[in-house]
Amino acid sequence: MNLTKQQLAQALFEQHTTRAHFSTLRSAGKVLDTAAAYDVQDELVALLRKARNADVAGYKIGLTSTAMQTMCGIDKPVFGRILSDQVYRSGTRVDLKRYVHLGLEFEIAVKLGSDIVPNGTPLSTADIAACTAAICPALELVDDRHAEYSTLDAGSLIADNAWNAGVVLADWQPLPGEFSVRQGRVFSQDPQTETGAVDYRHVLASVAWLAEELASRGSHLRAGEIVMTGSVVRTRFPVEGEVWHYEVDGLGTNGVNCAQEGT
């Protein structure tokens, strides 16, 4: 059956409402191409905004690293929208029962101080830096709904708003004047810590990629919007009772509490 983008979006919306496990999308038996997948995402986000009385607060970029692309079997970045009712502050309590299968990704968030409207020439890191109001360590909440990664395709991921289920933001800080590589550390109660490189040049290049992708679809980044720029370590899937921390040299600490209310 050759389903319309509205029908595909409605099917996704109903999957979220019924907490169904993720399944790949097909139209007329075919994988969605990138353009069609973003059209479905547009429709799904419109349904979510109406149901939740929410605005678009910004964007998430996913699969910016080779490791994450390999994990998902997809060879290019993707983007999705962040809705305003799912923007949280560091230390927030996350109720795992609200999600089908929650993952945590550890990133740098960028808050824009001005619009970014590409003019046809490649955007440089200096261009993006000039439009950046602040940055902070940030966690993205992703709900993969128990997806089967071995059969995941880019179109299905894109259409499902790249699995964004919210963001957790630390205090905003100025973008450093020099773009040296910093170290990010992720840990929970387990004393074992995983480290990852935080390269601000990569952060700004990710925003440039997004700006150009949006421009190709007749849109642009706006002042005040948040951009999540991709995970610096592997995704974690928390269990009840865990507290996760993420700290970046010179930028601060963020965290979420996955304990039950009252514990």
Rank of each mutant, 00 (worst) to 15 (best):
A134C: 07
A259H: 13
A159I: 09
I226C: 07
T193S: 13
G218F: 08
G58P: 05
R52S: 08
G120A: 09
A205M: 07
F13N: 10
G80C: 07
L8C: 06
W244S: 01
K97W: 09
T24I: 15
T263E: 10
R98C: 11
E178L: 14
L175W: 03
V227N: 11
P174N: 00
Q10G: 09
V256A: 14
Q260I: 08
V198T: 03
A11N: 12
A37R: 00
Q192L: 07
T4S: 13
L48S: 10
H16Y: 12
A109W: 01
P137R: 02
S124M: 02
H245K: 14
L83G: 05
P238M: 02
V256T: 11
R234G: 14
L139D: 04
C131R: 13
I108P: 00
A57G: 05
E194K: 13
R26A: 15
L123K: 05
L3Y: 14
Q173A: 12
R49M: 13
V117Y: 07
L214R: 03
Q7S: 01
D75T: 12
H21Y: 08
T18M: 14
N257A: 08
Y149T: 09
L32W: 06
S65Q: 01
A54L: 10
V167E: 04
T195Q: 15
L123F: 06
Y246S: 01
R81D: 10
G218E: 11
Y88L: 07
A57E: 07
N164E: 05
E14G: 03
N53H: 10
E178G: 08
A138D: 05
K30C: 05
Q15P: 08
I128W: 02
D199E: 10
A36S: 11
R185V: 09
V100W: 03
V167N: 04
R236I: 10
I128K: 03
L175R: 01
Q6G: 10
N257I: 08
G196C: 08
A133Q: 15
D171V: 02
D85M: 06
P238F: 07
D95F: 12
T229F: 02
H202T: 15
L123T: 06
A57H: 08
